[in-house]
Computed example of a mutant assay.
Amino acid sequence: MNKRMGVIAIIVKDRKFSSPKVNEILTEYGEIIIGRMGVPYRGKKLNVIALIVEANTDQIGALTGKLGMIPQVEVKSILITK
């Protein structure tokens, strides 16, 4: 399959509860993650993580699917065609 590049936005609403599972999954998929930026949004009590990824659509779908199943976590992705 062809690799695609994209950005995944992760919103963590309950850091203490959700962060360990989020980090576990990100470590599992570390080989497809090119870059990661995390920003605490204290005013809204949210944490935002932006990932730059390069992988096939099955891998990206598996990553976003696992993250999206974690309570208090929202995930959106956008992929570009090379």
Rank of each mutant, 00 (worst) to 15 (best):
N2Y: 03
R4M: 13
R4F: 13
M5P: 14
M5K: 09
G6I: 01
G6V: 04
V7A: 11
V7M: 11
I8C: 04
A9C: 12
A9V: 02
I11A: 12
V12C: 06
D14N: 15
D14R: 10
D14E: 10
P20K: 12
P20L: 14
K21N: 08
N23K: 04
E24A: 14
I25N: 01
I25V: 05
I25R: 01
L26G: 07
L26D: 04
T27R: 11
T27A: 11
T27C: 09
E28Q: 14
G30Q: 11
G35L: 03
G35H: 10
G35Q: 11
R36A: 00
M37R: 02
M37C: 00
M37S: 03
M37G: 04
G38P: 07
P40F: 01
R42W: 06
G43Y: 06
G43H: 03
G43D: 15
K44E: 13
K44P: 05
K44Y: 02
L46G: 00
L46C: 01
N47E: 10
V48C: 11
I49D: 07
A50L: 15
L51V: 01
I52H: 01
E54N: 11
E54D: 09
E54Y: 06
A55F: 06
N56P: 08
T57N: 06
T57C: 06
D58A: 11
Q59I: 02
Q59D: 14
I60P: 11
I60H: 03
I60Q: 03
A62W: 01
A62E: 14
L63R: 04
T64C: 05
T64Y: 01
K66H: 09
K66F: 00
L67S: 02
G68W: 00
P71Q: 10
P71E: 14
Q72T: 15
E74A: 12
E74N: 13
K76Y: 09
K76P: 00
S77C: 08
S77F: 08
S77E: 14
I78W: 03
I78P: 00
I78A: 15
I80Y: 10
T81E: 15
T81H: 10
